[in-house]
Design a protein around this nucleic acid. Structure first.
Length: 839
DNA sequence: CGGAGTCCTG
């Protein structure tokens, strides 16, 4: 697995163009026109590195092959080749194809593919370049591109210097050599081997070969996050290559991404001064980036500016702006722009509907969706597909997947096709519900109807699999996406790293992390944060700090999450003073502590019993105007409860409601637990009703707490009644609910009731461990209920769980206690046989 | 331009 990852994460070394130096002098440049006689020595030296020294040139054999090829049809040629193929070596193939490339290019290519496909011949680099030149000469550009792409991906990153040397030495005088160079640089760039692309460009400059704007654009795009982008742009200007409108919009985009907004705007307007018009694409980029950072008004003014230039916004312009408005919740204005869109003759498309549907559902405004539908009706537009899209998105967001599937059936029966976004939305909902296998079969369905899952689709699934703990399966998918040439990004990597650290071992996760970071391409603080959090959680604060230092060596910036995880780590290791010190250093990094930061520290203080200290931190937080969250208050409630300040905690709960910070299940569980401990079951159940009143669904933990409370504080029959009531209501209960009740019945000596519950628990499919059996057997033994002990002993053994020493001694004691000598000796024999008897 | 979600606190 790791090998794969290594292949995909090609290093991106940052070096400016100026610093590029040639690794070999060009004095060896040979300008011999390739011909049958003269090229033999040249090729022998050029390919010396990758040919076997035993390979020698046999002109006679070559001549024979040529003769055979020229005189016969392809089929016969293939047969003829078969007789030669054992005697062929790469030098000969280079020669033959090289010669043919000049005389009869078509035949050369045919021969090449014959050798490659039918005889499995591994061609040399020389041969590849001959074919490349032939393809270039014939202007078969798409073929040339994929051919060279295959070549550079085979050679891998860092291969540019040696390939350039070959290309420069042997092929300089070939027709179309310039085109091959350009395409060569282009494919390196497209394959994200940026430094190789830069190397090729530098060589081209030396050789006075001009790169095309397509190549430059691709490179600019790949470098748009870095400051090298502008260096490349200087190169473009110097080279005098005619720029396309994409050049501008890539640069505008890149400057925005580097937070150089002023520069981006200036650049955008500069095009006007140069006599040409800013393009719609360039405007769209600006609108999009400004929306992204929340400057909707600025985005809108750029939108208006387009009209002033006499440019008409396209569907992209509208969708970008409508999206921006939806994100900030200005649905009304978004709808106005949709009107405007139609008035200007731009049809809203499926993207527009997706954006609006999502916008309405984010705000919980289903009626807004109907607004759109009415609108569509009015315009007489194709309604069905719009309604379906909106409804599907809506149901996905509320998690009602069954409804989505119904709609899907309906759509399909009416001959409509789901688009790839619909599929992704559906996949995402399925994953969130943990229904991964259905998601996977939907992926196959997508593929079977010809939709291509992309990075996002795969990432959703990989993330879903990792969340379910199926990391191995996730990795399989990760490999599959690579084979389909879909390359993972930090989202994907983050999901895998998270899954590995959660389900696998920490060292496995670390190995993966090291491969990613050492490649140099992935520089993402999130990956560091995940790793640091893991170390922190396991109390390995030393390793966490070590990684923190590495962040700076990698020249990336820590985020507040980094510090929060570190503080969490110090708290876990009970080093609260250090945690405090780290909290105080946050501001020196230009970051602001969040509620999470303070809550982490407060929780640690609370656990330590330092409630005063906790409350001090709370007030410090308030003076620094950092809003406490419901988690913060839950911690405070916990602290107050610890000191039996129940009335205060109830008061806090009320003030939370008043402040609009809704308490969640955790908050209620905490406070209910406190009232149970204080033996106030009436209040505990009252709080439970309050939860329902606030539309909060009590979870299994809530019920465990309540059942336990009843067991401890009330008559056991009340607990039994409540338990059956919950079961009748089909409320999901977890194992602790059962074990709590079992424990209580054992303590009371009601073995048959305990027995029945235990069997129920087994029937429900809960995983029963030796701990559960021994707890049961222990309690029964202590009460000398040996017949029941025997029953459970048999159950346990038939469940495939073997005895341990501790449980043997307990049972032996019980048998002896009741004078059941037969059983005692029988078990003693087993105990000794299994070597469990203590010395 | 739409569909992943930056994996930190109870």
């Amino acid at each position: 697995m790791l090998n794969h990852i290594h292949q995909w994460t090609r290093p991106l070394k940052r070096f400016p163009l100026k610093s590029l130096t040639l690794t070999t002098p060009l004095s060896s440049l040979t300008l011999t026109k390739p011909s049958a006689s003269a090229s033999a020595s040249a090729s022998a030296s050029a390919s010396a590195a990758d040919t076997d020294p035993a390979d020698t040139y046999d002109p006679a054999a070559s001549l024979e092959i040529l003769k055979c090829l020229k005189s016969k049809d392809l089929y016969s040629s293939s047969l003829c080749l078969k007789t030669f193929v054992d005697r062929l070596n790469s030098v000969q193939v280079d020669e033959v194809i090289g010669d043919l490339g000049v005389e009869d290019p078509e035949l050369a290519i045919e021969l090449f593919y014959l050798l490659k496909n039918e005889h499995g011949f591994r061609h040399s680099r020389v041969c590849s370049f001959v074919v490349a030149h032939v393809l270039a000469g014939k202007r078969r550009l798409m073929e040339l591109r994929s051919f060279l792409r295959e070549l550079v991906e085979q050679e891998g990153s860092g291969s540019a210097p040696s390939l350039c040397e070959l290309l420069g030495n042997r092929f300089r005088v070939w027709e179309s050599n310039g085109l091959v160079w350009d395409m060569f640089a282009f494919v390196y760039s497209r394959s994200e081997m940026v430094h190789d692309a830069l190397f090729v460009l530098a060589k081209m400059k030396d050789l006075n070969i001009r790169a095309s704007i397509l190549t430059y654009n691709s490179l600019l795009f790949n470098l748009r996050h870095t400051n090298i982008m502008l260096d490349v742009y200087e190169e473009i200007k110097a080279s005098g290559a005619p720029q396309s409108e994409y050049t501008t919009s890539i640069l505008v985009d890149g400057l925005c991404r580097q937070s150089l907004f002023q520069e981006a705007v200036a650049f955008h307007q500069e095009t006007e001064r140069k006599g040409s018009m800013p393009s719609v694409a360039s405007f769209n980029t600006l609108i999009s980036r400004f929306c992204e950072v929340g400057y909707i008004d600025v985005a809108k003014s750029f939108f208006c500016m387009m009209f002033k230039y006499g440019l008409l916004p396209d569907a992209y312009s509208y969708n970008i702006l409508i999206h921006g408005l939806c994100v900030v919740g200005s649905m009304e204005e978004a709808l106005e722009f949709m009107d405007d869109m139609e008035n200007h003759g731009v049809e809203p498309d499926v993207v527009t509907y997706n954006i609006l549907a999502k916008g309405f559902h984010l705000l919980g405004m289903m009626c807004g969706a109907w607004e759109i539908i009415r609108h569509m009706l009015h315009k007489g537009l194709n309604l069905e597909i719009v309604i379906y899209t909106i409804l599907m998105c809506g149901h996905c967001q509320t998690g009602d997947i069954e409804k989505v599937f119904e709609l899907r059936e309906e759509m399909l029966s009416q001959g409509f096709q789901l688009n790839d976004i619909c599929y992704s939305v559906l996949l995402s909902s399925l994953c969130k519900k943990g229904r991964i296998s259905e998601a996977l079969s939907l992926l196959h369905e997508m593929e079977s109807i010809g939709l291509k899952p992309d990075l996002v689709t795969y990432s959703i699934l990989i993330h879903g699999l990792c969340k379910q703990g199926e990391v191995q399966h996730a990795i399989q998918l990760y490999n599959k996406m690579h084979s389909k040439r879909v390359f993972p990004n930090s989202f994907t990597h983050g999901a895998i790293l998270w899954g590995l650290s959660e389900k696998g071992t920490l060292s496995e996760a670390r190995t993966f992390f090291d491969v990613l970071t050492k490649s140099g391409l992935i520089k993402d603080i999130v990956l560091y944060n995940i790793m640091i959090y893991r170390y922190a959680k396991l109390g390995k604060i030393g390793e966490a700090v070590q990684l923190y230092k590495q962040i700076f060596e990698s020249r990336i910036t820590p985020s507040i999450v980094t510090f929060n995880s570190l503080i969490y780590g110090f708290c876990k290791s009970r080093k609260l003073a250090e945690a405090r010190t780290w909290l105080d250093t946050i501001s020196t990094h230009g970051l602001v502590p969040t509620a999470v930061t303070y809550t982490t520290l407060m929780n640690a203080l609370c656990e330590e019993g330092n409630i005063r200290g906790m409350l001090e931190v709370l007030s410090e937080m308030e003076t620094r105007a950092i809003k406490p969250t419901n988690v913060t208050y839950t911690v405070v409630v916990k602290g107050l409860c610890k000191q039996h300040r129940l009335q205060e905690s109830l008061h806090l709960l009320d003030s939370m409601h008043a402040k609009g910070i809704s308490p969640d299940e955790f908050t209620y569980n905490t406070i209910i637990h406190c009232f149970c401990k204080a033996q106030d079951m009436r209040k505990a159940f009252q709080l439970h009703s309050e939860m329902l009143l606030h539309n909060l669904q009590p979870g299994p933990v809530t019920y465990n707490v309540l059942i336990n409370g009843l067991c401890v504080n009330r008559d056991l029959t009340e607990a039994d009644r409540y338990f059956s009531f919950l079961q009748d209501q089909n409320i999901r209960l977890t194992k602790p609910a059962y074990t709590t009740l079992i424990k209580a019945h054992c303590a009371k000596g009601d073995a048959s009731k305990a027995d029945a519950l235990f069997r129920q628990m087994v029937e429900k499919g809960f995983e029963i461990s030796i701990r559960d059996y021994s707890a049961m057997i222990n309690r029964l033994s202590r009460r000398k209920l040996t017949p029941n002990v025997k029953v459970f002993l048999r159950m346990m053994l038939s469940d495939g769980i073997s005895l341990d020493q501790e449980i043997c001694l307990v049972i032996l004691n019980a048998f002896r206690g009741v004078g059941d000598l037969n059983s005692e000796f029988e078990l003693l024999a087993v105990t000794i046989k299994h070597g469990l008897f203590p010395d």
